[in-house]
């Protein structure tokens, strides 16, 4: 293949990529335009919070507890080398509230709720249910997609907060009950080092952004899926891959903006 051949290929790839990105942006705008209408029929959103949020509570709590345990053990191992094992509470709380809570919740969310959203909408499309709705003059974006987007956006920060809270409890169980750090030191170090707005607040903002990202990617992939069994399968895979990558990259950007500048 000659170089002259390669250049148009690269150009075609770049244009196609930009086209898909622009398409996704328009799709998001259209979904957001439809959210006020779904607020008027709030029960649709409530049902989605139930499907997305309630069923994720157990997996979120279990992973939060496990992550808290591990943070407690690993943090103690490192901190005790510097004779600072009392700071374990601070280490566990800061890493959970700032990073692990929002990020791990978002990754679990992509796997637990994002896939089911994509598969559901992909199959609705494959079964021509969306087309049938359009025939009945019902906008599927308004009736099907917007409530799911809102449900995901509402559920994610709450799930992330649960993850962090359970994780801190896990760190407490390992640090104080098993290893035997003084509980007073554990909590007081945490309380003097964690700020409500800078740490907890920014963590909630992060998980809100991840909620929009994960739900939106899942909906877009489902809506754009090829209306075949393979198409739905590929779309589901893409949902997990794209939302995980997007969450991790966005997390870096958000962390750089939120925490890199000294207060």
């Amino acid at each position: 293949m000659s170089f002259a051949d390669l250049l148009p290929r690269l150009g075609r790839w770049a244009i196609g990529y930009l086209f898909r990105l622009g398409h996704a942006a328009f799709f998001l705008v259209e979904l957001l335009k439809n959210t006020p209408a779904s607020l008027r029929r709030f029960y649709l959103v409530v049902a989605q919070i139930h499907a997305i949020g309630n069923y994720s509570v157990v997996i979120i709590a279990a992973s939060g507890l496990a992550v808290g345990f591990v943070l407690g053990l690993q943090g103690y191992y490192t901190l005790s080398r510097y004779g600072a094992s009392e700071s374990l509470g601070l280490l566990v709380a800061l890493s959970l509230v700032r990073e692990l809570g929002p990020v791990v919740t978002a990754l679990l969310f992509a796997g637990r709720a994002g896939t089911s959203l994509t598969a559901e909408i992909g199959l609705m499309k494959a079964g021509e249910q969306l087309a049938a709705m359009e025939l009945m003059a019902i906008d599927p974006k308004q009736r099907v997609l917007a409530p799911r987007l809102l449900g995901g956006i509402i559920a994610m920060p709450l799930l992330a907060a649960m993850f962090s809270a359970v994780g801190i409890f896990g760190g407490y169980v390992v640090g104080v009950l098993m290893i035997g750090i003084d509980p007073g030191q554990f909590w007081s170090q945490m309380q003097s080092g964690v700020d409500v707005w800078d740490d907890v607040g920014n963590g909630i903002i992060k998980s809100f952004v991840f909620g929009v990202t994960c739900t939106f990617v899942a909906l877009l992939e489902g809506y754009e899926a090829n209306a075949t069994p393979e198409g739905v399968a590929q779309a589901t895979t893409r949902t997990v891959v794209i939302s995980s990558l997007a969450v991790l990259l966005l997390d870096f950007v958000l962390t750089a903006v939120m925490f890199s500048t000294p207060r």
Binding site: V97, A161, S164, V166, I168, W187, Q191, V194, D195, D199
Partner: peptide, 16 residues
Amino acid sequence: IGFVAIGYLALKAANL
């Protein structure tokens, strides 16, 4: 439960 978790983080962890 979500709001309780946020409250727990704000009050217990950050000592609002």
